[in-house]
Simulated scan of single mutants.
Amino acid sequence: MTSRAQSLRDAIEEQIAIGKLRPGEHLDETVLATQFRVSRTPIREALIQLATMGLVVIRPRRGAVVAEIAPQQLVEMFEVMAELEAMCGRLAARRMFSEEHADLLKAHQACKEAHDEGNSDDYYYQNEAFHQQIYAGSHNAFLAEQARNLHRRLRPYRRLQLRVRNRMATSFTEHDEIVKAIIAGNGERTAQLLREHVMIQGQRFADLIASLSHLASKAA
Rank of each mutant, 00 (worst) to 15 (best):
A33F: 02
D28F: 09
R44K: 12
I12Y: 15
L27W: 01
R22Q: 10
E29G: 09
L21E: 00
G19A: 06
P42C: 06
G19Y: 02
L32V: 12
G24S: 04
R22L: 11
Q35S: 10
I12M: 06
E45L: 08
R44L: 06
A33H: 02
S7E: 11
T30N: 10
R40I: 04
E14Y: 15
I12T: 07
T41P: 00
G24N: 08
E14A: 12
I16T: 06
I16Q: 04
T30F: 13
G24Y: 01
I16G: 02
E13L: 05
A33Q: 04
H26E: 11
T34G: 12
G24Q: 06
L21N: 04
P23I: 04
G19Q: 03
T34I: 13
K20P: 07
T34H: 08
L21M: 05
I43W: 12
D28Q: 07
T30G: 12
Q35L: 15
R22V: 10
R37Q: 15
A17T: 05
I43V: 06
E25Q: 05
T41I: 13
Q35H: 11
I16E: 05
R22F: 05
F36S: 02
L32Q: 09
R22M: 10
R44W: 11
D10Q: 07
H26Y: 15
L32C: 08
L27N: 02
G19T: 00
S7Q: 14
L8T: 01
R22W: 07
D10T: 12
R37P: 10
A17W: 04
R37C: 15
E29A: 12
D10H: 14
Q35K: 14
T30K: 13
R9H: 06
D28A: 12
P23T: 04
L21Q: 00
D10C: 08
V38W: 07
S39T: 07
A11M: 10
P42A: 12
V38K: 00
I43M: 08
E45Y: 13
P42F: 15
F36A: 05
E25D: 06
P42E: 11
L32R: 10
P42W: 14
S39C: 03
I43P: 02
D28M: 13
P42V: 10
T41S: 15
L8Q: 05
T41A: 15
K20S: 14
T34Y: 06
S7D: 11
L8C: 01
G19D: 02
E25A: 09
G19W: 01
R37L: 15
I43Q: 07
E13K: 00
I16M: 00
S39D: 09
I18Y: 03
V38C: 02
V38N: 00
S39H: 09
L32N: 08
V38E: 05
E14R: 08
S7R: 11
I43A: 04
E13T: 02
F36C: 03
P23V: 00
A33L: 03
G19R: 04
V31H: 08
P42N: 10
G19E: 02
P23M: 01
